[in-house]
Amino acid sequence: MQRTEINLDETDLAILRLLQEDARMTNVALAAKLKMAPSAMLERVRKLEEKGVIRGYSAVVNPLAIDKDLLVFIFIKTKDSFADDKSARALAAIPQVMEVHHIAGDDCYLIKARLSGPTELMELKRSRFSKISNIISMRTTIVLETVKESSHISID
Rank of each mutant, 00 (worst) to 15 (best):
R114Y: 15
E5Q: 13
I103D: 08
K131F: 05
I136G: 01
V97E: 06
I153F: 10
S127M: 02
K131W: 04
R17G: 01
H102T: 15
I54V: 11
Y109A: 07
L48C: 06
E149H: 13
I6R: 05
R114W: 13
R128I: 00
C108R: 12
L64W: 11
C108G: 09
S133A: 15
K112H: 11
S87N: 10
Q2S: 10
E99M: 15
L115V: 08
Y57E: 02
V97M: 05
I111F: 03
R89Y: 14
I136K: 10
V45P: 03
A14L: 00
I15E: 03
T141V: 06
I15L: 02
A29I: 03
T4H: 14
A93S: 15
F129V: 02
Q96K: 14
Y57Q: 00
V60L: 10
V143S: 13
D9F: 03
L34G: 05
L144H: 08
A113T: 09
E50V: 13
L121Y: 12
F73L: 08
S58L: 07
G105V: 05
S137D: 10
I111T: 05
Q20A: 00
E123K: 14
A90Q: 15
A59H: 12
M25L: 13
V60C: 00
T146P: 05
E10T: 13
L34E: 05
H102Q: 12
D69G: 08
K148S: 06
T26L: 01
L16I: 08
K51D: 13
L64H: 13
N27V: 00
H152D: 09
R44A: 07
I76H: 03
I76K: 02
A83H: 15
A59E: 11
R46C: 00
E149L: 04
T146Q: 12
I135F: 08
N7H: 15
R3Y: 10
E21T: 01
A92W: 02
I142N: 00
M1Y: 07
S87L: 08
L16P: 01
A37M: 03
I103L: 07
E123S: 11
P95N: 11
N134D: 13
A29V: 09
L34F: 06
